[in-house]
Each structure stands twice: as C-alpha cells, then as structure tokens.
Design a binder for these strands. Structure first.
Lengths: 367, 367
DNA sequence: GTGAAAGCGCTAACAC
DNA sequence: GTGTTAGCGCTTTCAC
C-alpha cells in the first residue's frame, strides 16, 4: 500500500493542462489575460488532480509583510490588562507570519483623543484594531482609514455604522439578556428591585447590555423592578460609592447587575452592607477579583469574553484580509462565556503564556 | 519616516555573526555540531537584530507532509454529526498546510472494535485523533501507537491513563458541576428529587459529568435528592422509555439532568407527562433540537462544547506536534459553553461553512 | 496570451 | 565544525 501523499503542485497542474506554470498560476489566482479555453483546461486539471495551493509557498513567494496598530485603553481595568497581555502574545505569533503589531494606549473614554489617534495614524499601517467609542468623530476617522485602504477592525466595543471591516467581540445585547435570564431564574420568582451599576451608558457595550437585560426582565420576570442605572465610570472608588448609596436607599434590593468594571468597589459595598449572602450579584469579565468573589459566593455569575480569543481573532482577521486569505467564520465568532461556581477555570484566569523570545512586541506609538 | 518592516532573515543574522547561513541555522534550531563560542556569537546577533524565523519558509524548505486519521463514532447522534462536519472543514484547511485527514467511523461503544481499529492503523499515519472509550484494550492500543511514534490525541472523551499526547475536549467533571450549580440555583431552595438520564455510565465522560453533578448537589443543595441514574444508551426511543418510567414512578420529581444524548426522547416523555413548564431540565450539546426545546422553555439550560473548536484544535495540535512547532496552550483549551434562553446563537447552531473546493475531504478507511 | 526564469527564507545534503 | 549549494512551491517580472 503506497503512501498517498496528496501532494499535487501547480507544476503538475500545468503539465496536465499542457500549459506553463505561469499560466496555471494566472488561472488559479483568477488573474486576467488567459483565453477562456486555456483557463478551462487548467481548471479541469485542478479538479482532476485535486490540487490545493500550498499556503506556505504562496506566502513566501509573495514576500509581503504587514504592519498593524492595536489601539487599546490606558488604565488599570483588569480585563483590559488581560487584553493587552494577549495582544502581546498575538504579536509574538504574528511576527512569525510576517506581520508586526504596534500597541498604542489611549484614553478610550475621550472621543477626541481616540479620533485624533486614528486620524494621525501613520500610513504605513496596513491594518488597525481599535477598542472604539461609538462617536461621530471616531466613526469618521474609521471611515477615512477604510477609504484610504487601511483595514479597520473594532475590538470589544463596536462602531456599527462605520465602514469598519469587522467587529471582534461579543454580542452585547445577548450578554445582557443572558444576565437577565440568570438573574430572573436564580431569584426563582422572588419579588423585588434590581440595581444596575454601569461604567457609563455612553459606552455602547454598556448600553447594549443594559438594553438586553431590561428586555428579558421586563418581558419574562414581571415581579422584578429595574431601578434607574447608576454610573461608576469603571472606577473602583466611584463604583463603591454609587453602590453604597443604592443599597442604603433600597433596603428591598434583591439583585445587582454590574454592567461594566469597578467590581472590587461593588464587592466592598455589598460586603459592608452585610448583603454578601443574600443579594444576587451578576457581573462581567472573569478576572482574579471576580473569580475570588465567585468562589466566596458574593458574586453569583460572571458573563465573560475571552481576551485571548479576541486578540488572536483580531490578528487573524487583519492578516487574512490584508493578504487575501480566507478565514473560518466560525472561528472568529466570539462567544459569551458564563461562569458560575461549578466551572471556574483553574488559576490564573486566562493568564498569558508569554513567550516573546527577546522580541520587543509592543513598539512605541510614532515609530 | 521610513517604514520599518521588521524583516530580518537568517542570512542577516549569519552576516552579523560572521558565519555562514548553515551555521546560523544550526544554532537557531539547536542542532549539534557548533562550537560554544560560535553559537554565542550567533545568539547575540539574533537578539541584536530581533530575528524571528519565517514559518512559511521553514515549512516550505522542510517539505514534509503529514497524514492523520480521525476516528469518529458511527450513528446519528446529532452532536457527533456536527463534529464530523467540522472535521471536514478542518480537513479542507489542513490540506493547505500539507496535512491530510482520513475520517473513519466506528462503533465507539465497543472497546474491541475501536481497539482493533487502532491496532490495525496503517503505519503511514503520523497522527490520530480518536473519540475514545476508556477501556484497557483501547488504552493498550493507544500506548502502542505512541510507542511506535504515532501522535495520538483523544477527542471529546479521554483515556487519562494512556500515553496519548493530548486530550481535546471539555473538563467533564466541571461540566457536571456546572449543571449541578445551575440546577440547584434555578430550583431556588425547592425540595425534591432529581432524575439522571445518562447514555451509559461506562462512558467516561458521562460518568464524570454525573460525578461532578452529584458533588455539587450533595454538597450545596441538601434539599435535593438525586435518584439512581437510568441509562438511555444515547438513543431516542430508549431514552424516552426510561424517562417515562422515571416520571411515572416519581411524581415529586423536580428536575432531570440529561448527561448524554437522546434528548428528543426525553423531551417527548416530559411533554406527554405534561411537565414541560414546571420540570427543570438540563441537558448537554446545542443541536437543532436542544435549541428548539430551549426556546420553548421545556429545556432550561444546555451545557455545550464547540465541535468546530474541538476539530480545529485536534488538527492544530497534531500538526504542531508532528512538525515541531509551538502551540498557544490557551487556544487549545476547550471551554464549557452554557446556553440559556438569553444567549442562544442564531440558527443554524454552529453549522459548517463548508468550502471544500472540490476536494474529497473524507478519505475512506483503508486507503 | 503565454512562457522562462529569478527569487522568497529556510532546510538538508554534502563538501571541505 | 563550518561552508556551499540545490531545492521546497509559488509569485512576479520580463520576453516573446
């Protein structure tokens, strides 16, 4: 039994079709300048021999390399730190694929800062991944980049009406609905008020989660009453303060849905009110902190997104688009993770197995 | 501002170190036969220039290709059908990476069949992915394959004490614990009996899920009593029969945990008993059917695993191991998915975007 | 329209 | 120990 290797080269196809390598290449890559009849012969040969292009050889011969900018938030938000780490890992991986990432950190709460960053982005970038703010100036900047041929993907937070090529992130309304379903079911028919603590409802992802949550609670759990959202700006101290006020004002509060970050502050507020055990609390993002609150029982469920998956996906999508390769759509769908006490992954939650081999992964901004 | 391409080749490194290409290559790839001092000079140059090997070029030059066998269950189990489809998609992708997959379908409930299949596997396979049964004969066959240099990964169901290189699948005890947590919380302090419907407790994944479920219910929800498991062999008719009996015998049943397949049968039993609305039912795998039961409210939560992710992961791990490339461990961790009414993905659930371009993806068994 | 030929960056065989 | 060299399969000029 011979070992069928399956190895069929373009050369074989050319021979079979009785044309030269160059012509076979033109046909296979749909380049112009080949007679119908010749093309047909080549296509026949492709089918007959079961030819599949060798991606490694194609990449090598094309000899193109790419440069991408990743624009991430400044600050100490734990999830964003994970994301930054994972972008580093992705950069190391991409470097082996002739693609190079520069990471820039900006204040994403400020549309002008992020808009300006995009507007001034050096032209040598083939692609950019940006944790965006849905604002006209940002949208315009994205559209301009797209117009000049730079591939733009939005990361974690989308700008739906822009001309961005792709959005890498979870379906936030669905995440909110999931939180709503869990909240309603965990409360098992109990009657009471639900508090909402968001970072800022001006952030599209927060607003969308709130929307989805509301939808489910209003539609399926009429005994629950959602209070007006309070904003903690994703900061620990401020989140603690607003949560404290919420708890003091509504002694009959049965649940809290934390839409954004600042969960350490919320935990403090809940604990100092002595409500750890009975108050139902659902939050976003699995970090070292939410993980602990989940184990302690203060936090009842976490809705998560996988930072590693998001970073890799952004890198893959940019690379594929710039180099004209196909992606596997299923692989680029970022799922909503749900964590309860039973399925908390082993420490450290999604920590990065960084292996950068002496490479400076994060170049500075303007270089 | 010049565009720094980051493109540093081995040739550059060799020049910088004052050695030849071949020597630089030996050092970089840790091959023997280079003096300490020379190696040091090369390593210095690597660091100084920030050299990263070009994977595409390496693959091309190595000019190796691989052949893998995927051993999957026969039968019409919906999840396994998804998996088969996804293995097809993976095969199409791998074909572009000089790796070729043959798919074999065997009766995984029979240790002798699967053992024999492994024992007789042609030597030209560089790797095999197998949905295994944890049985001595199977374990021995896996160990023999490993001993002769064939890389073995277990898929979906593990054989932990074998010498398999890697397990691609979810953490089943954790999946069971998750089901337990959801069951307990959704029942919100209610008292009553829980029925367990498994395919067969001789299957390691089913046994592990049952174990994890038990652990959580016994430890955290003392008001719930778990009944002795009944087995439906993952078949629709049989699952319906055992569930009917369960419901008839225990009118005070408050929940059912379906550990394996056969969910259409379980649904029929629940419906004909008129318990769709009040009985809490948790099952595994998101299929067209469980999706519908979830939407209808008969089913309250689904614990899932992503067949596409598993198929790709198995392919990547085999390819990486056989070609000596690194993997990103984080990417190869298969997470436990949880679906409730709020986060059911759009139809068709994980359907395959098949794009095989005229390639016969699934070769027949003995070829 | 079509073909010949020069690489792309690396590996591996062989020579020194 | 170290260097030279012939490819790997494809893309891309540049002739014809």
């Amino acid at each position: 039994m011979a070992r069928p290797t399956g190895k069929v080269t373009l050369e074989d196809v050319a021979a079979e079709a009785g044309v030269s390598l160059a012509t076979a290449d033109r046909v296979v890559n749909k380049r112009a300048g080949v007679r119908e009849k010749t093309a047909a012969r080549v296509n026949e040969a492709v089918l007959k021999l079961g030819y599949r292009p060798d991606i490694a050889a194609a990449r090598l011969a094309r000899n193109r390399s790419f440069r991408f900018a990743f624009i991430l938030p400044v600050g100490d938000n734990t999830f964003m730190t994970q994301l930054t780490e994972q972008v580093g890992v992705t950069a190391a991986w991409l470097a082996g694929q002739r693609a190079f990432i520069d990471t820039l950190h900006v204040d994403v709460f400020d549309p002008d800062v992020i808009g300006r960053t995009l507007e001034r982005l050096p032209r040598y970038y083939d692609g950019v991944a940006v944790v965006a703010l849905d604002h006209p100036r940002v949208r315009a900047a994205i559209d301009d980049l797209t117009a000049r041929g730079t591939t733009v993907v939005t990361l974690v937070s989308d700008v739906p009406n822009s001309r961005r090529f792709h959005y890498v992130g979870i379906d936030n309304p669905a995440a909110g609905r999931t939180a709503g379903t869990l909240m309603g079911r965990f409360l098992g028919g109990k009657k009471g008020k639900i508090g909402i603590v968001a970072g800022s409802l001006a952030l599209r992802d927060h607003a969308e989660r709130y929307f989805g949550f509301n939808q489910v609670i209003a539609g399926e759990f009429p005994k629950l009453e959602i209070l007006a959202p309070v904003e903690g700006r994703d900061e620990r101290a401020r989140s603690e303060a607003v949560t404290k006020r919420l708890l003091a004002k509504h002694p009959d509060l049965v649940g809290i849905y934390s839409v954004g970050a600042g969960n350490r502050g919320i935990a403090s507020a809940i604990e100092s009110a002595g409500r750890s055990a009975d108050l139902l609390w659902i939050a976003h993002e699995l970090t070292a902190y939410t993980r602990r609150f989940l184990l302690l029982g203060t936090l009842d469920a976490v809705i998560g997104q996988n930072a590693g998956h998001e970073a890799r996906s952004a890198g893959r999508v940019l690379l594929a688009q710039c180099s004209g390769e196909r992606i596997v759509p299923d692989q680029e769908t970022i799922g909503i993770d749900i964590f309860v006490r039973g399925n908390i992954p082993a420490e450290p939650a999604f920590a990065a197995p960084v292996e950068t081999r002496g490479l400076a992964v994060a170049g500075s901004a303007g270089r």
